[in-house]
């Protein structure tokens, strides 16, 4: 009986996915400028969250380096944007982040638990401070202007990055490497003795996840027109993906996407009008979720559904 429900659900799910795709693919044609900008921002948050989950979800290593990879993409775009066409700029942004993550990963992934989190967070601030110093003392400028691109192009590029991120995350989680990452999160020593090259696997997946954050940064830079080290390497971009993933629930693949959509929407709605209240709500939700919803929204949903089923069984 279980099997038939799964089978009948699959076309429905695919149909829904296709509908969503059509809806978003033509958004710039029928939607307002505001809606295009809003959805771009939401896409960006999903990219950051899902790319964070690719590595940190299964392994349990809480990376706070998202802001560094995102920022590197932003700065690459600001520096190269005037000389190269957009696709090359974005590839460069992604690759620079990839290389940074490869380097940092090889250096630090032997640090466990809280030390890894601290190191990755230190990385964000170190790059921020070094750039600031460089700009003040060497180039004698503060920040940069980024070449402006129309909103629809930014939207489509972000849409493409989003699709690539989700597909990559999906295929990694379904592959044998996804299983291996999960085993690292469970017991790293046993993984190594089961023949998994844990160092290489962790480093590569960490770098792959940085790829998407870098690409997202490269395109977002063109949307912001002016950037400086504080805008580009804002620690908030390190915390946000973690929160969104936890809020949505990391147990299921779609949990982090749901979390990102809800939070990104809230943020875009509230942050310009009531920034302090937004931060307050952000903090309260984070604490409440960690305390009462360890499985996130998806976990809550599953629990509720299970309870529902049990009740039905009890009634029959």
């Amino acid at each position: 009986m279980d099997k038939t429900t799964v089978l009948s659900k699959k076309p429905l799910f695919l149909g829904l996915l296709f509908l969503l795709f059509i809806l978003f693919a033509f958004l710039p044609l029928y939607g307002s400028v505001y809606s295009v900008i809003l959805v771009t921002a939401i896409f960006m948050h999903i990219v950051l969250t899902v790319s964070w989950v690719i590595f940190s979800g299964p392994t349990g290593y809480i990376s706070l380096a998202s802001a560094a990879f995102f920022g590197v993409g932003i700065y690459t775009s600001a520096i190269l944007g005037k000389t190269f066409p957009l696709p090359i700029v974005i590839c460069f942004g992604a690759l620079t982040s990839f290389c940074l993550a490869l380097f940092v990963g090889a250096l630090t992934l032997r640090l466990r638990g809280i030390y890894f989190s601290m190191f990755t967070f230190g990385l964000v601030l170190l790059i921020q401070q070094l750039l600031l110093w460089y700009e003040v003392n060497i180039t004698h400028t503060r920040g940069r202007f980024v070449i402006v691109i129309n909103n629809a192009t930014i939207y489509y590029v972000m849409f493409a990055i989003l699709a690539a991120t989700i597909l990559t995350a999906y295929f990694i989680s379904r592959s044998k490497y996804g299983l291996a990452l999960q085993s690292i999160g469970e017991d790293e020593e046993a993984s190594a003795h089961t023949g998994i090259n844990v160092t290489v696997l962790k480093t590569i997946i960490f770098a792959v996840s940085a790829l998407f954050a870098g690409a997202a940064g490269a395109i977002m830079a063109t949307r912001w027109t002016y950037i400086d080290p504080f805008i580009a390497f804002n620690p908030l971009f390190s915390f946000m993906p973690v929160l969104m993933a936890i809020f949505g629930g990391m147990g299921q693949f779609y949990g982090s996407i749901i979390g990102a959509v809800i939070f990104a929407y809230l943020q875009e709605m509230l942050i310009t009008r009531f920034p302090y209240y937004y931060m307050l709500i952000f903090g309260i939700i984070l604490v409440v979720v960690i305390l009462y919803l360890p499985g996130g929204l998806v976990g809550l949903l599953q629990k509720w559904r299970k309870g529902d089923l049990a009740e039905k069984h009890a009634n029959t």
Binding site: A180, S183, E186
Partner: peptide
């Protein structure tokens, strides 16, 4: 040292 949250088959499959 087993992988507690992975199903039995997954453990061996690794």
């Amino acid at each position: 040292k087993i992988f507690g949250n992975i199903p039995v088959l997954g453990n061996v499959l690794l």
